[in-house]
Simulated assay, not measured.
Amino acid sequence: EIQAEKEKLIKEKKIKKEKPLPEIEADEIPFEIPNNWKWVRINDLFDVARGGSPRPIKAFLTEDINGINWIKIGDTEIGGKYIYHVKEKIKPEGLKKSRFVKSGDLLLTNSMSYGRPYILKTDGCIHDGWLVLSPFVYSLNKEFFYYLISSQYIKREFTKTAVGAVVKNLNKNKVKAIIIPLPPLAEQKRIVAKLDELLPHLNPGKEP
């Protein structure tokens, strides 16, 4: 289903066709998973892209009700999982120099503290301090991938891919190639329910 949707998006020119990543080799697999799970690359499930910033940003900020949400790292909460609201908007013409993202996408911080995930609960534009993971099939359990990306395994993988002499940033193409375990959807939901029970501080609750 995921691969079919990906091909459909390519045909509709909503995403670009890219050179296929190599098959996952046995020596890449870091640990065993249940037989009904599958190792996949992030690029198999998500379109990964970097944000963009219209400059000078002050010239594009607006208080007009028709402005586009301007999603910044400052709109997140410490220990939060979701981004519900933003403080600023940009003029529609800024869209051409930025990247539009949708509710249900996953955002990753890509600046001083890289790789911190958030689940979007609003639409808007993101600057280049973010990477966005847009699922090819929105029925994927976003909370499962939030917890997976928050895991020590993925943090180690991000550390391997981060580039920069002074300030480390995530390399988009290397993030795409990271392998992750994919359980069946029903199991994704069971894992999330158990983690929400065990880690309530990571689930701050409903929209304020």
Rank of each mutant, 00 (worst) to 15 (best):
G67Y: 04
T109F: 11
L195V: 15
L9N: 06
N110W: 06
K72H: 08
R50D: 06
V167Q: 14
Y118F: 10
K160A: 15
V132W: 07
V166L: 10
K14F: 14
E77P: 05
S134M: 00
N141T: 00
R41W: 04
L106Q: 08
L106T: 08
P20C: 05
E18N: 05
V132E: 06
I15C: 12
P208T: 02
C125L: 10
E32P: 02
E7S: 14
K155T: 01
E18F: 04
A26N: 04
N43H: 12
L107V: 08
F158P: 06
S103T: 03
Q188F: 09
K8L: 12
T62M: 13
K194W: 14
S53Q: 06
P183Q: 11
F145P: 07
S103A: 10
N203V: 01
I191Y: 05
I24S: 11
R50L: 09
Y114E: 07
A193M: 05
E197S: 13
A26T: 01
L9D: 07
N43Q: 12
N203G: 00
A49M: 03
L61E: 14
K102F: 14
N169L: 08
P135D: 06
I68Q: 02
T62W: 11
L131S: 06
V86K: 03
Y153V: 01
A26E: 10
P54T: 09
P183H: 09
E88H: 07
K58Q: 09
I119M: 13
W130N: 10
I29F: 02
D196L: 15
P30C: 03
L133E: 05
R116A: 12
N203H: 05
L182H: 08
I73E: 01
I126T: 06
A4I: 10
R116Q: 09
P208A: 02
F145N: 06
V40C: 03
R156A: 11
I178A: 02
L95R: 08
Q152C: 00
L21G: 07
D105N: 00
L182D: 05
S98F: 03
K194E: 15
I191T: 11
D105H: 01
E23T: 13
K38C: 00
K87T: 12
S150G: 00
L120S: 03
F46C: 10
K19R: 09
A193K: 08
S98K: 03
D44F: 05
I71M: 01
P208K: 02
I2E: 04
D196E: 15
F60V: 12
G74M: 07
G164R: 01
K8S: 07
W37G: 09
Y147G: 12
